[in-house]
């Protein structure tokens, strides 16, 4: 244990207010259970939007259904709280309609890899320029604790009272194989790292996927707890080369000890680029850019 620096509440509040992060938080207080890992995610998102200097009105947060999907109400941006599993296609529509917007999709493991599993490959392969924050708590929290596609085998829940017979999916491996152009993993219990990863994901031009491990403190007292996750997570090896997809997949396969960090990144044309290309091929004129300020360019500078 090192020296403990005293932190005074007033100073901290002042620092937060001056940072401008609060402008990205709405007045609605999150409905999550005390101790939920998601608090740190909403905080990190607000901080990242702030850091990237995205005008509030140019950000759209899209979610499906689940505990995490309440997210749009807690940030001060445009938002869509859509249907279970459909956040990605809705966000694809938003981004296709206006390239200048910063679009963030948030959702849980059930939303993204059970009911909405069919949409992930297509958002990834098209390289839709959006950021997908997947909150993985390995459980259906909103409906009070049923198994999810990332629940551990043998997990006992109200819908699997004897045990969960299904082995969990490996979303990181899947998304890597789907062709996502930015793939990373973070842990809600490491908020600083989380914030950095979210900022990077948002700054990436293309489909960025950030897998965020987070405990459900209410319905999972045995598997994905803070203490278990704290012991399991590790950093990606220092020499991991994030342009090497095969290496990223090798790391992703070790899901017993999840590694945090940037798995993979590549620059390639986005869906918007491709669609603009079609307009050129067809001899059409690109419409005048919509009123929104191009946030990304500012961010990359």
């Amino acid at each position: 244990m090192g020296d403990i620096k005293p932190v005074y509440l007033e100073e901290k509040l002042k620092e937060i207010e001056e940072s401008g992060r609060l402008d990205y938080r709405s007045k609605t207080l999150p409905t999550w259970c005390p101790g939920c890992g998601y608090f740190s995610i909403v905080e990190a998102v607000a901080a990242s939007l702030c850091e990237l200097n995205v005008p509030n009105e140019n950000a759209v947060v899209v979610s499906g259904i689940g505990c995490s999907s309440r997210f749009p109400f807690f940030v001060n941006t445009y938002g869509m709280h859509t249907l279970h599993g459909r956040a990605l296609p809705v966000a694809t529509g938003v981004k296709t309609a206006n390239d200048a917007l910063t679009v963030v999709v948030v959702g849980g493991d059930g939303d993204g890899f059970a009911i909405g599993g069919g949409h992930v490959p297509h958002a990834a392969r098209r390289n839709v320029d959006i950021t997908y924050l997947l909150f993985d708590n390995g459980i259906y929290g909103l409906t009070k604790g049923q198994t999810s596609p990332t629940s551990a085998i043998g997990f006992r829940t109200p819908t699997s009272p004897y045990e969960n017979p299904d082995r969990p999916l490996n979303p990181l491996l899947m998304v890597l194989s789907y062709g996502a152009s930015w793939v990373g993993q973070a842990y809600a219990g490491r908020p600083d790292h989380l914030h950095k990863m979210i900022t990077q994901a948002m700054a990436h031009r293309g489909f960025s996927y950030l897998h965020i491990l987070s405990p459900c403190v209410t319905f999972d007292k045995t598997h994905r707890t803070y203490s278990n996750l704290g012991m399991q997570v590790r950093d990606l090896p220092a020499d991991h080369e994030p342009t090497d997809r095969a290496a990223a997949m090798r790391e992703a396969m070790d899901d017993a000890l999840p590694a945090l960090g940037l798995y993979f990144r590549e620059e390639r044309p986005t869906l918007g680029d491709a669609l603009d290309g079609l307009v050129e091929k067809a001899g059409g004129e690109l419409p005048g850019k919509p009123a929104a300020k191009p946030a990304r360019k500012a961010a990359r500078r």
Partner: peptide, 15 residues
């Protein structure tokens, strides 16, 4: 499902 979802997303965006 994806088609109508994207339409709703684009409609929301003003397209």
């Amino acid at each position: 499902i994806s088609a109508i979802s994207a339409v709703v997303g684009a409609g929301f965006t003003g397209a």
